[in-house]
Design a protein around this nucleic acid. Structure first.
Length: 495
RNA sequence: GCCCACGUAGCUCAGUUGAUAGAGCAAUGCUUUCGUAAAGCAUAGGUCGCUGGUUUGAAUCCAGCCGUGGGCUCCA
């Protein structure tokens, strides 16, 4: 006997083994028709996943109105796309194909180089599969059997993933649809027709296997899917609209800035109108800094290599710096990649008493970084830029207050600029890595304090291990741009 | 750096299977005139990213380089 609790608090009892779909039918034919997926005790499952035979369970039915259902459908669409590509091209190896914020992607290894020209044929094949409406069938297999299946299917990437990535799972699930079988946690829609035809392949890109740049590069196909053509069209129109607001388009139209290959990639030339805007922004930020007790300083654009070796930055970032300038007397200078060591030298310029702490030094410091050519992007990723940068020297019991006021200032400035679409990411250390300096104890204390301060400010900050700088944890303000891309802007770090 | 795509007048773009470059807007001139998201007519403007190659002949095919865009990786 199973007792099911529904979201409205009511409950139902079943003597036989039932599925979410059966329960939905029981509640009403309308609900059964609209159902896409379900949630049992907080876990999203397919409509055909049997519920426990005994005991009790909470059940929620997801219809098209819920984001969870959309995510399930998009993942099924990813399978459909993979199946279509395997039908059209030989020797396709499957990697991963998850749902993402506004659609889905799937990574493949295949001899044919995919390009946008191939999209219509793939979409056509997908439409055929939707029309055929074959069911998605879930298979549970032991690890050994799962490996054997993937070997037989000539899917070495899946074999590797089972043996290494999923080492702790005693049994694994597959989803089959016709001739297509894919290792997959699921869930999926019941059959292909539920996906509909409001989908579109968007772009193809390279992506490293398991995100590791030392490993092979796969072909990633980005796509999206909606329940209706209207929603799909609205989404595509929104992308077009966002393109018109792209800072690179506006920067050109409004004559704000330009980039000239003769000057160099990623090096910005500010035009008079852009310089006016920059001037206003700088004045605003300078006032805010002054209000909060920051003292302005200036430092040079270059420094001796030994300076960065002493600070410890040099080995960590040597691959993204402009090469040192060698002088005749064997002096080597670096184009300044960060302001930190300079500010520390200012602090050290005379003996300090604890009574003068905190000392807050601020500068619009211009820095130069040799970013890889492929990651340059308009004004958002460049090789020369000016940071609104400050370093606060304080005692340990002042840390929480200083961190708090710094977080508040960042929030206020972002709010003043109308940038409200952001989240705060707490970069903590990866316990398994040894790249970090400092004692375990001080790391623990620092991380705990960041969490505490964010809680106090009502910031919903998500801790992410492995995201810390080598010398300390940090809080990053990650802003979403008009095309939905993420950019780390402000960052408050502890050393 | 890696994968894919792209690089034609100031801007946005068109140029089918290779044969001496086109449109709209902007600019300039004239006209009309109160027109305030684009008034009419006319003119000018490009070694078709660069360098090689294939060809009787290349913007159009091939190679290399430079640059841009979408991603991946990285981010002090």
């Amino acid at each position: 006997m199973l007792t099911i609790t529904l979201p409205d608090g009511s409950s139902r009892q079943y003597a036989d083994r039932v599925t979410p779909l059966a329960v939905a039918k029981d509640i009403g034919p309308g609900l059964a028709k609209a159902a896409v997926a379900a949630e049992v005790d907080g876990k999203i499952v397919g409509l055909d996943t049997p519920l426990p035979a005994d005991g009790s369970a909470s059940l929620k039915i997801f219809t098209r109105k819920s984001p969870e259902a959309l995510a399930v459908m998009r993942h099924s669409a990813a399978h459909l796309m993979a199946r279509a590509i395997m039908r059209l091209y030989p020797n396709v190896q499957l990697a991963f194909g998850p749902t993402i914020e506004s659609g889905f992607y799937y990574d493949f290894e295949l001899p044919h180089n995919l390009s946008e020209e191939d999209f219509p044929a793939i979409e056509e094949e997908m439409r055929k599969l939707v029309a055929a409406d074959e069911p998605f069938e879930r298979l549970e297999e032991s690890r050994a059997k799962a490996v054997a299946i993937c070997r037989e299917l000539a899917q070495p990437l899946k074999v590797e993933h089972i043996e290494q990535g999923l080492a702790e799972h005693p049994s694994l699930s597959f989803y089959r649809q016709g001739e297509f079988i894919d290792l997959c946690r699921g869930p999926h829609v019941l059959s292909a027709a539920a996906i509909g035809t409001a989908f579109k392949l968007l772009s193809v890109a390279g992506a490293y296997w398991k995100g590791d740049s030392t490993r092979q590069q796969l072909q990633r196909v980005y796509a999206t899917a909606f329940w209706t053509k209207e929603e799909l069209d609205a989404y595509l129109a929104q992308l077009e609209e966002a393109k018109r607001r792209d800072h690179r388009v506006l920067g050109k139209q409004l004559e704000l800035f330009t980039i000239d290959p003769m000057v160099g990639q990623g090096l910005i030339l500010w035009l008079p109108k852009g310089a006016t805007i920059r001037g206003v922004l700088e004045s605003f930020v300078k006032e805010e800094l002054a209000k909060r007790g920051y003292q302005a300083v200036y430092t040079p654009h270059i420094g001796r290599v030994e300076l960065y070796e002493t600070s410890g930055h040099y080995p960590y970032y040597s691959d993204s710096q402009f090469a040192p300038i060698e002088m005749e007397d064997n002096e080597r200078y670096l184009l300044k990649p960060m302001n930190c060591p300079h500010h520390i030298k200012i602090y050290q310029s005379r003996p300090r008493s604890y009574r003068e702490l905190p000392v807050r030094l601020a500068e619009f410091g211009s820095v130069y970084r040799y970013e890889k050519s492929g990651q340059l992007n308009g004004m958002t990723r460049v090789r020369g830029f000016t940071q609104d940068d400050a370093h606060i020297f304080c005692t340990e019991d002042q840390v929480a207050d200083e961190f708090r006021s710094c977080m508040e200032m960042t929030q206020q400035i972002l709010a003043a600029l109308g940038m409200n679409n952001y989240r705060v990411r707490l970069g903590f250390r990866d316990p398994k890595s040894d790249k970090y300096v400092g004692s375990d104890e001080s790391w623990r204390r620092a991380e705990a304090e960041l969490v505490e301060v964010c809680r106090g400010l009502g910031i919903d900050a998500v801790p992410e291990p492995g995201e810390a700088a080598f010398y300390g944890p940090k809080a990053d303000f990650v802003v979403t741009d008009c095309i939905g891309r993420l950019w780390q802007l402000g960052t408050v770090q502890l050393d």
